[in-house]
Every structure is written in structure tokens, then in C-alpha cells.
């Protein structure tokens, strides 16, 4: 078996091409793949489809490639706090699909688990249901289809050379689901370890879902809203 370990983001992302679809982990800026996003800003690529809950925030995260006009289509659930994205949607400069967050995560999970589609009441009676099949179970539900991607770029706190991953606190969010749903999953870690160093029962995502892994550098781990107890 050839090694999954890559030297850095540039090497690991080299074959991302024009028109590729990319899932990117993180909730707001929490748990985003900082090194891979920075690598995308330096690549000569366009017409990307990006699948990410927030598409970054206030100039940070995926906003960096949004303002380079590399994104043609985006799937996300929340735009608040991202004026660059809100403006582009309002001016119809980007093709956007807003997806309820639970449907978003479930569509991604379904793709990874071989489920083609599922029925859910979420979105029934709203614009989200427009054009979708409705079926009545205990209540009306709409049909939602699995959401796949060519690539997933995600970040984990620790990972081993097989791609087994361990996430810290709420930085896990969409990342393990995206890892399952993409054809090629590229992981950056704060700490790359040898196989066997992570205890089997502590592994949040088995390495079978990971194709490439590299040791990241210079993590900022930005806080969006710092709230602390007053003295």
C-alpha cells in the first residue's frame, strides 16, 4: 500500500482542478482546514463548487477564495456574519443553494454511507421544498438527495499515517461526514502520529475514509466571538 502521507498542503491539493467540487469542514471558523484553504488561494483554479456550512466568515476561511472569484456554486446553511457572501448572493454573482443545517449534514452523511436519498419534514411548507417530491408519513416530508464531492478538505487535531482521526471538542462538526462523502479526502492535522499511537477506542473517524494526510503548520484557530466570565 502506498503512503497516504503528503509533505504539505501544496502537494496534497495539487490535482484539484477547474470545476471541481470541494467539501470543507468547520463550523464558522472552528475546525476549518486552514492550510488547505491557504493553498487554494495560491492555485490557478476557478468554477469551483464549494460545500461548507458557512463559506468562512468576515474575510477569513473560505472567504479568501470567494473574494478571488474562484467559487461558482456554493452549498451552505448560514450566511450571517459573512457580508462578502451575502452581497454576492443578493447581487446574484454566485449560484447558491441554502440547505437547512440538519438536511445539509444528513445529505453529506447519506452520500458517504451509500444512501441515495431520504425523506424529512425539515423544510416542508417553505421554499426549501420547492420542486421536491412530497410524501406523507406521520406528517408531510420532502425527498432530499445525497450530496457528494470530488474532494473534501478537513482538519483534525491528531491523525495517524493510516488516516485515523481524533478531533478536539466542537471542531469535529461536519468533518467526519465530509471525509466519508468525498472521492478524495485530504486531511491536515495539528499532530501527525504513527499508527498505534491513537487508542483504537478513541478514533473518531477510521482511516479507511481518508486518502491523504499531512502535518499542518502555523494554526491560528481564530475565535469569532470571545466571551468570558466577568471578574
Amino acid at each position: 500500500m502506498s503512503s497516504k502521507v503528503y509533505k504539505n498542503a501544496t502537494e496534497a491539493l495539487k490535482d484539484i482542478h477547474n470545476g471541481a467540487s470541494i467539501m470543507s469542514g468547520g463550523f464558522g471558523l472552528c475546525g476549518i482546514p486552514e492550510n488547505s484553504i491557504d493553498a487554494l488561494t495560491k492555485m490557478d483554479i476557478k468554477d469551483l463548487t464549494v460545500i461548507s456550512n458557512n463559506i468562512g466568515n468576515s474575510g477569513r476561511g473560505l472567504v479568501k477564495i470567494l473574494i478571488q472569484d474562484k467559487i461558482k456554486k456554493a452549498y451552505c446553511s448560514y450566511v450571517g456574519g459573512n457580508p462578502d457572501l451575502e452581497t454576492r448572493i443578493m447581487n446574484k454573482e454566485i449560484d447558491i443553494e441554502l440547505v437547512p443545517q440538519g438536511t445539509f449534514s444528513e445529505r453529506i452523511r447519506a452520500a458517504g454511507l451509500g444512501i441515495r436519498a431520504f425523506y424529512t419534514p425539515t423544510g416542508y411548507g417553505t421554499v426549501v421544498a420547492d420542486g421536491k417530491e412530497v410524501k406523507h408519513f406521520d406528517r408531510p416530508c420532502i425527498l432530499e438527495e445525497a450530496l457528494h464531492a470530488d474532494f473534501a478538505i478537513i482538519k483534525a487535531q491528531k491523525g495517524d499515517t493510516f488516516g485515523n482521526l481524533w478531533f478536539k471538542e466542537t471542531a469535529r462538526n461536519f468533518s467526519p461526514l465530509m471525509a466519508m462523502a468525498a472521492k478524495t479526502t485530504i486531511v491536515e492535522v495539528e499532530q501527525l502520529v504513527e499508527v498505534g499511537e491513537l487508542a483504537a477506542e478513541d478514533i473518531h473517524l477510521p482511516g479507511i475514509f481518508v486518502q491523504r494526510i499531512y502535518q499542518g503548520t502555523n494554526y491560528k484557530n481564530d475565535i469569532e466571538f470571545l466571551k468570558v466570565q466577568e471578574d
Partner: peptide, 16 residues
């Protein structure tokens, strides 16, 4: 035409 925040998890929460 004025403001867009997106639904986030709200559409799931109201049914769940």
C-alpha cells in the same frame, strides 16, 4: 432584497 442570514439549523429545530 434586504437581509439574508440563512436558516442554519432553525428549519430542523422547528420540526424536531
Amino acid at each position: 432584497g434586504k437581509k439574508l442570514t440563512g436558516m442554519g439549523g432553525a428549519m430542523d429545530l422547528v420540526h424536531g
